[in-house]
């Protein structure tokens, strides 16, 4: 594998891992919570969009907040990891930074400083997402480092 090929794989991996979960979470919010500030922007741009058919999915109905929190923390960890590229113990630092910020936001929600609903389960799901992402990042970085450069 050439150095440029490695770089392309690296970029694709991080793009998919950071952007797709974020978009998936956004899509769920679009279908279930059209009145939120981030979704209202979409419906102002596309007033004829109708995602109501997705809002009848029973599984998503129940697990929506946890899935979205998981996706957010997962994408956040990957984005931080991308920025910290080539930093020693990248995956631990990324995981820590994203979890600390998740925790801060939840605590701010609990205290009423920012909007949103505090839920202890959110913190657990965000922690799970950060750890999952860190494990994937660790394995990916290790495998790409072990690849021999032609």
């Amino acid at each position: 594998m050439t150095k440029s090929e490695k770089k392309i794989i690296f970029l694709i991996f991080y793009f998919v891992a950071a952007v797709l979960p974020l978009l998936s979470g956004y899509f769920i919010y679009l279908a279930f919570s059209p009145g939120l500030p981030i979704t209202a922007i979409f419906y102002e741009l596309f007033p004829n969009a109708d995602l109501s058919c997705f809002s009848e999915n029973g599984f998503l109905k129940i697990s929506k907040p946890y899935i979205c929190d998981f996706m957010w923390a997962f994408a956040f960890t990957f984005s931080v990891s991308f920025v910290l590229n080539k930093t020693r113990l990248n995956y631990i630092k990324s995981c820590s930074v994203s979890f600390v910020f998740s925790l801060i936001l939840e605590l701010l929600q609990m205290s009423g400083i920012v909007s949103g609903t505090f839920d202890f389960a959110d913190i657990l799901f965000e922690l799970l997402a950060c750890i999952t992402a860190a494990v994937i990042i660790k394995n990916f970085l290790r495998s790409i480092e072990n690849e021999e450069i032609d």
Binding site: L22, Y26, Y29, S33, G35, L36, P37, I38, C68, W72, A75, F76, S79, S98, F101, L105, Q109, G112, V114, S115, G116, T117
Partner: peptide, 13 residues
């Protein structure tokens, strides 16, 4: 960016 996403998805108080 991620904080904006998180705050934007919080319901209005």
């Amino acid at each position: 960016v991620f904080v904006v996403f998180a705050l934007g998805s919080g319901s209005k108080t």
